[in-house]
């Protein structure tokens, strides 16, 4: 089984083949079953040390990785930027090398700069798992999205997936695009023209600015969190106008096919990108995504952690 996987790091989905992605999803099947047992723990990473190194704040992803590692019997340390020596001016490289000197086996990195996981992976013996780098990639989020689609629909090839929202600044969107295209899905990006530049078409996807034309044909809609903080003010006029043009309102949800899946990487803004009733409706698989995230992250830690030794 191991010959199907030979990477110590998971940096992004762009560098993975369709076979490697599928192999992770298959491995996650086995770990999903573990979560249903009375004793939800296996000894796969016993004696290994995993460091959750979150230079950018995160609760959801960090908790998911921590729980995944605990269920694999690894020892887990959590470090945040404010509590690390980065706050004292130490470089990322030095901080990471210090962690390695303490015999950390797996480093899960969340960082605001695109490429930070590559940077560390090239310099460390330890496994580096990208838990989100700037607007670049968030591979485990995309893998859990793929897992959820595959679980609910049986396949990914041939499905039409609409990703809606702030694509330009979204690492979730990029990793989803790479994974979905490799696995044969048709992808349409939807959002304001300033946040969904046409340049994305060169990645093998379609771009639309008319959500009402896209929703009736979609098998999956993946809504991204929309924010209007300081650096976004030049990109769109405001939340109200965003919701009017691109929000998945109760009315718009009627355009969807009955079996269309509604996904969201969270945390959701109820009433902004998605109406509350829609988020809690029968088509929503948002909480399945969270559950599946655990299985997918167990699979990733197991596979990469096994190579690093």
């Amino acid at each position: 089984m191991k010959q199907r996987w030979n990477r110590k790091d998971l940096l992004g989905l762009r560098e993975l083949s369709a076979e490697e992605i599928t192999f992770i999803l298959e491995t996650a099947d086995a770990f999903k079953e573990v979560g249903t047992r009375e004793i939800k723990k296996v000894p796969a990473l016993r004696g290994k040390t995993l460091v959750n190194f979150f230079v950018e704040p995160s609760t959801r992803t960090r908790t998911s990785f921590e729980l995944a590692a605990v269920r694999l019997s690894a020892d887990v340390i959590n470090i945040s930027a404010s509590a690390s020596s980065l706050a004292k001016g130490e470089t990322l490289k030095d901080t990471a090398r210090n962690l390695e000197a303490l015999h950390a086996d797996i480093l899960v990195l969340r960082h605001s700069s695109a490429g930070a996981p590559q940077f560390l992976a090239q310099r460390l013996q330890a496994s580096v798992i990208n838990a989100g780098d700037g607007a670049h990639e968030h591979p485990t989020q995309a893998l859990l999205d793929l897992y959820t689609i595959r679980e609910k629909r049986g396949t990914i090839a041939g499905l039409h997936v609409a990703i809606i929202g702030d694509i330009l600044f979204s690492r979730v969107a990029r990793s989803n695009i790479f994974g979905l295209v490799k696995l044969g899905a048709r992808v349409t990006l939807v959002g304001p023209s300033t946040l969904v530049p046409r340049e994305f078409e060169k990645l093998g996807v379609e771009v639309s600015y008319k959500i009402d034309n896209v929703l009736p044909n979609a098998d999956v809609v993946n809504l991204l969190r929309i924010q209007h903080e300081r650096q976004r003010k030049e990109y769109f006029p405001g939340i109200g106008e965003y919701t009017r043009f691109f929000g998945l309102t109760k009315e718009r949800a009627k355009l969807l096919k009955p079996d269309c899946l509604i996904m969201h990487p969270g945390p959701i803004n109820r009433g902004v990108e998605i109406d509350s009733e829609v988020a809690d409706g029968l088509q929503s698989v948002i909480l399945d995504q969270v559950t599946n995230g655990l299985a997918v992250r167990m699979a990733v830690l197991y596979l990469c952690g096994g190579i690093a030794t």
Partner: peptide
Amino acid sequence: SGVVNEGYWSTLLGL
């Protein structure tokens, strides 16, 4: 805050 040419590669890499 641009650091690389705005185009295909910035779109791909999220820089």
